[in-house]
């Protein structure tokens, strides 16, 4: 085809693009991912029995704050990485800082305890399933994020996939807090972090080939 013909074709009645289109789409992904995770919690895992009481406690919101901040970092990084000329550096530094603060808080709590207490906190009641549950809950959101990204213009597929995973993982882990009754920083710092990072790694793996255009 001649280039002029192509231009004529493309320029015929271009659909208007609203301002903030990128942010809007990722917000949509966050809502869809959260709803899907919520449905999975309600029908599969069920909410914790003491949810109403737990919501008045500090630890419930501490967990939610950590994972929501990870999701926010992922959102910010995606908003940059979805553009061909976007610089994700500050978003990545923010995400790393959030992670370090909460992991260090967990380590500190662990080091201040006796070895037996430390092991009890580390295992909690659900250490074998925590990361896996977060991964499962995040899959719909991850798929949605990758589908949206395929129509954008990321130039760093693996890193963008990782950000998509951290974003979806953060959202899913926040919803997972409605089910998970663990209430120590040790547990959250280790297993929630691991869960979100696993989703990030999966996103990077898929992104490597799915985010080429």
């Amino acid at each position: 085809m001649r280039t002029d013909d192509l231009i004529d074709q493309l320029a015929t009645d271009p659909r208007p693009i609203r301002e903030g289109a990128v942010q809007r789409r990722f917000l949509g992904v966050a809502v869809a991912g959260a709803l899907a995770a919520l449905v999975l919690v309600l029908v599969w895992l069920h909410t914790r029995h003491d949810l109403a009481e737990a919501m008045t406690g500090r630890m419930f919101w501490m967990k939610a704050t950590y994972t929501a901040l990870l999701a926010l970092a992922g959102f910010w990084a995606l908003e940059r990485l979805a553009r061909p000329d976007g610089a994700p550096r500050r978003a990545l530094i923010f995400g790393a800082a959030v992670l370090v603060v909460f992991v260090v808080a967990g380590l500190t709590q662990g080091l201040l305890s006796t070895p037996e207490q430390r092991m009890i906190m580390l295992r909690g009641h659900s250490w074998t399933v925590c990361a896996g549950n977060i991964l499962t809950l995040s899959l719909p959101g991850l798929a949605a994020a990758l589908l949206v990204l395929r129509r954008m213009a990321p130039t760093r597929p693996a890193l963008t996939g990782f950000a998509a995973g951290a974003f979806a993982g953060g959202v899913a882990a926040t919803i997972y807090g409605l089910h998970c009754a663990e209430s120590t920083m040790v547990f959250v710092g280790v297993w929630y972090t691991l869960g979100v990072l696993v989703v990030g790694a999966l996103g990077a793996l898929i992104g490597r080939w799915a985010l080429r255009w």
Binding site: V22, R83, D85, A153
Partner: peptide, 21 residues
Amino acid sequence: RRATYDRAQPFTPWAFALARY
């Protein structure tokens, strides 16, 4: 992929980032 253009940013670097890719 024009939705990924940020109206607050210059246009040329965005377009040529696509070209470079």
